[in-house]
Design a protein around this nucleic acid. Sequence first.
DNA 1: CTGAAAGCGCTTACAG
DNA 2: CTGAAAGCGCTTACAG
Lengths: 337, 337
Amino acid sequence: MATIHDVARAAGVSISTVSYALSGKRSIADSTRRRVADAALSLGYEPHAGARMLAGTRTQIFAVTAPLRHDTYAPAHMAFVLAVATAARRHDYDILLLTEDEATKGLSRVASSRLVDGVIVLDVSVKDERIALARTLGVPTVVIGIPEDPDGLACVDLDFEAATRLAVDTLTDRGHRRFALLGHPDEIYERGSNFPIRVRDTFTAYAAEQGLDGRFLTSETDSAAVRATVDALLDSPEPPTALLMHSQESVQATVLDHVRERGVSVPDDLSVISVGSTFDTTRFSPALDVIPLLPHATCDAAVDMLVAALPEPPEPRVQYVAPEYRANGSIAPVPAP
Amino acid sequence: MATIHDVARAAGVSISTVSYALSGKRSIADSTRRRVADAALSLGYEPHAGARMLAGTRTQIFAVTAPLRHDTYAPAHMAFVLAVATAARRHDYDILLLTEDEATKGLSRVASSRLVDGVIVLDVSVKDERIALARTLGVPTVVIGIPEDPDGLACVDLDFEAATRLAVDTLTDRGHRRFALLGHPDEIYERGSNFPIRVRDTFTAYAAEQGLDGRFLTSETDSAAVRATVDALLDSPEPPTALLMHSQESVQATVLDHVRERGVSVPDDLSVISVGSTFDTTRFSPALDVIPLLPHATCDAAVDMLVAALPEPPEPRVQYVAPEYRANGSIAPVPAP
DNA sequence: CTGAAAGCGCTTACAG
DNA sequence: CTGAAAGCGCTTACAG
């Protein structure tokens, strides 16, 4: 392995000149720079990572803590890990993946050994031991998702409030006045889950504000429960013409199946939008309009925040990522009564 | 951050004694070891990772290259990444995740900067640019999966040959003589995919060897094609009593649906085993017996090989992981004619 | 059983 | 515009 000394010798300069020529941290005569670059290239020189960490102030590594929980939806989880890695590489950062059961132990270890310049916390849960740690880690940290108490933390997340209003607005623009939102099982709301509650509260408040009929429904995830929920909704007097779904993939699939079985056509009889989903709604029949989670936009923002925080600790704040509407043909103007 | 000097001062010894006391690399008086350990603990001392890399011979980091391809099945992919990380931690190793499009560039970079002590190559494809690189990387490398030409490489993989024979044996033990194997679309075999071909060839050879009726079928993945394939099979004279499936999840689900629609009962009329699957076959109805991919066993073996290879390059060889049979009630004795 | 010291390969003030 | 040198925090022969 070539060292900086080899490059210096080959280029006929000192090692400090090599260092500066390659880093661009001070002005170097063009001819010198060229000779150094040539020497480095022909020797296949790559600076020793450990030496850089020790002498410099940066390791060029971020830790990503991404614990796998029993209810983790693997494709979304991976999309986020991948998006973080891709964004990090654009800033010349590599990703150290921490998946340990005791996530805090791994975080403490890599932070206090100065292995990483920063930490990205993925997929925070309501009671997440990593959150308390993040405040005291001594290493810049950005959280993706919003914990119960985001005080003093730098967080990034999809703007679920805007997403919910966007879904409603899109449908009121087409004349809809009677809405339902199908959410997660009750248990999710009881244990204080972040996004579902934000979506629910935004929906009910916004519907009230606009004078809309806005019904909020929860359902267990088994097929029978979902079908019963759909039946109750469709059999009610003045059933809704517009349905938002913020629930898991299988539930949304079952809803569409059962609606079709009941002879209700999407979008002619019922307009449907999937809100805040991580899965591919074009595989449904019919394909659903969706306001999806945005792993790339979210992770780009998180990595940008982290890189900006390297000179000094990140400014605590919550940054919201703007939602995007993806039309797939599942909405239509309100049907004539 | 406490350094080794702080610990030495607090314990009243030299820094070399601290280093040896913590590493255990030479014998230390018990009382000294205790004082050092106490000092380290109370100061929250964690050795500087960069300094260790520079002075020592190990970085305690493995690179994992896990490119996401369009046909990557996310849950399996994640299971392998996670299993590697877990196995690595047992040897005090962290995982640097390389997902770049140009996988070779990332590998070269981390290898020549001496950032990692070893490399695990996940999910090798038939023509994988990482394979040629692995032979010349100058860093111990272990491949999970078996590339077209495994010469000179250390590889670990499920023993698909044994898995296939195990499936057949399990059914012949119950009297079955007429078998079908449903594989992937033709294209997969034409482009030389590794496992599907190994399963197919083992199946046909083993069936012939045992004097069994062993039909091999391929099918496109869309529902209509799968149903037509099932129809052709069931409508043939002397249809099989045992079906092995080595195909994607949705295809297996469709087969089960259509078999049920045709009034054929699993396992009473037809015994079914899923071979080499990465997904949860207990979610099917009926739940399927399966000889699954074994991420943990495979990744444990790979990490063990890599750790063993640290002092010297890994001995090139292909290590097969023994298959396991998981019964879920989808097989029965051959029905009376 | 323990210590003093060299040296790993960089970065970055300091000096000119 | 460039160089000589200190120093980052460890590990590990060398010495006793």
